[in-house]
Nucleic acid binder design. Structure first.
Lengths: 104, 104
DNA sequence: CTAGGTCATATCAGATATGATATAAAAATG
DNA sequence: CATTTTTATATCATATCTGATATGACCTAG
């Protein structure tokens, strides 16, 4: 089970403590996780309006499975890839900055 | 010579074309580079006011040389590490978001 | 000058992220 | 329903990023 799924559980009312506590993360690690999660969710939103996962994958010279992981908050996906994907959907640095600013 | 040094040359008036042209980067790749550069510079600023490279390195369980590379825009440093370092200097997601929004 | 502290550069083995592929599951379409 | 399209999951070899270490360069103070 990955972090995104844990967040989803939390969202559905599984009040078993904060993500940080659950995963035993330091505040900084926790913020990093939430930044990645925010980027994932925003990416999914943007991409869905514009193209298919396969199309986005081609734009960033990646693969459809990797895009799926990016959108689902898989741990194996770096912020780099998330940002590359965001940019490929036409997101500006301002868009990305806002998503990150609102995380946490 | 790394990207940061190329940016520095540009800043000093070496009008030899944009960084993108010089490095033959796509617009998206270019924005990514500028985001990393903006984070580097901002990290250096913040860190200098608060602590030594060695101290920051310990906070993020890294090494002083790695912090030096992070601050100098070395290609081998990921956005992840840059953000981890920023957070360790007390930067908030808002701070980080603003730095990214102003890049490009 | 020189001793101590700070930062930069080089190298490297191990860890993590990567794209690719195969395939299953799910959703949309007719 | 059946077919097609789209998305999710599993596995893998390779590339990239990592922290560590060694060492050099650069200060500034004594």
């Amino acid at each position: 089970m990955d972090v995104a799924k844990k967040e989803r559980l939390k969202g559905k009312g599984w009040k078993i403590g904060s993500v940080s506590e659950f995963l035993e993360l330091s505040p900084e690690e926790s913020i990093l996780v939430e930044i990645k999660l925010a980027l994932s969710l925003n990416l999914k939103e943007r991409r869905k309006r514009l193209m298919t996962q396969a199309e986005l994958a081609e734009k960033i010279h990646s693969s459809q499975p990797r895009v799926a992981k990016a959108e689902n908050g898989d741990d194996s996906v770096s912020i780099e890839l998330l940002i590359r994907a965001m940019l490929a959907t036409g997101a500006t640095p301002q868009d990305i900055g806002q998503v990150i600013a609102q995380a946490g």
